[in-house]
Simulated assay, not measured.
Amino acid sequence: MEQLGERLRRYRREARKTLLEVAREAGLSVGFLSQAERNLSGVSLSSLANIARALNVPLRLLIDQPEQRSPDSHAGRRRRYSTIDRGQSYERLSSTFPGSQINAVKMSLPVGYRSESVTHDGDEFVYVLSGKVCYCVDGIDYLLQPGDSLHFDGRQQHHLANVGEVAVEVVSVGTLPIFDDIAAAPAP
């Protein structure tokens, strides 16, 4: 099975773009993108959405995400998925329907996790379920613990890190399209 890095490299080459061109268009560093293509670094969903846009391909070609056709989502029934096997994983919480604008995931981040620095269009809202996480947004650190939340403009440079001694669980809701499956038909 083709790993994420191999998919990134293949679609970049098919688009006839250099690492520098894709990195610049996706708002990432060349070094980070190179590591991602070699499966040496995990990639956040927001960075993958930016890369997909730079490559002019649907996000679903880069990562296999579970569909969420039903408007309800239940603990223990959601399929976990990851961008790369570095310990972080996601559970899809929201469905897609014509006109939907928000996308929600539950993120599980291992001890020591640190994301790449990224910018993207839209709002981002996070709510911490467990652990300690530090979000750095536009150069300002926000230390968040269970019950804390943060809402910010995704166009500001931001990254996050698990700064505690246990895994972190965070609900992230945003307007950046991270699910591009075919929208479910509206209920009659």
Rank of each mutant, 00 (worst) to 15 (best):
R86T: 08
R86H: 11
R86I: 05
G87K: 02
G87R: 01
G87T: 02
G87N: 05
Q88V: 05
S89H: 06
S89W: 02
Y90W: 06
E91D: 03
E91S: 04
E91W: 00
R92V: 13
R92I: 12
L93W: 02
L93D: 04
L93R: 01
L93F: 05
S94Q: 04
S94R: 07
S95F: 13
S95K: 04
S95N: 12
T96R: 14
F97T: 13
F97G: 14
F97D: 07
P98R: 13
G99H: 10
G99L: 12
G99R: 10
Q101N: 09
Q101W: 03
I102H: 08
I102V: 15
I102C: 09
I102S: 09
I102F: 13
N103V: 08
N103F: 15
N103T: 09
A104I: 10
A104Y: 04
V105A: 05
V105N: 09
K106E: 14
M107D: 11
S108N: 06
S108T: 14
S108P: 00
L109R: 02
L109W: 06
P110S: 07
V111Y: 01
V111E: 02
V111M: 02
V111G: 00
G112F: 04
Y113L: 01
R114S: 03
R114T: 07
R114E: 11
S115L: 10
S115H: 08
E116I: 08
S117D: 09
S117M: 09
V118F: 01
V118W: 01
V118L: 06
D121Y: 08
D121P: 03
D121S: 11
D121Q: 14
D121V: 08
D121G: 12
G122Q: 08
G122K: 07
D123N: 14
D123I: 13
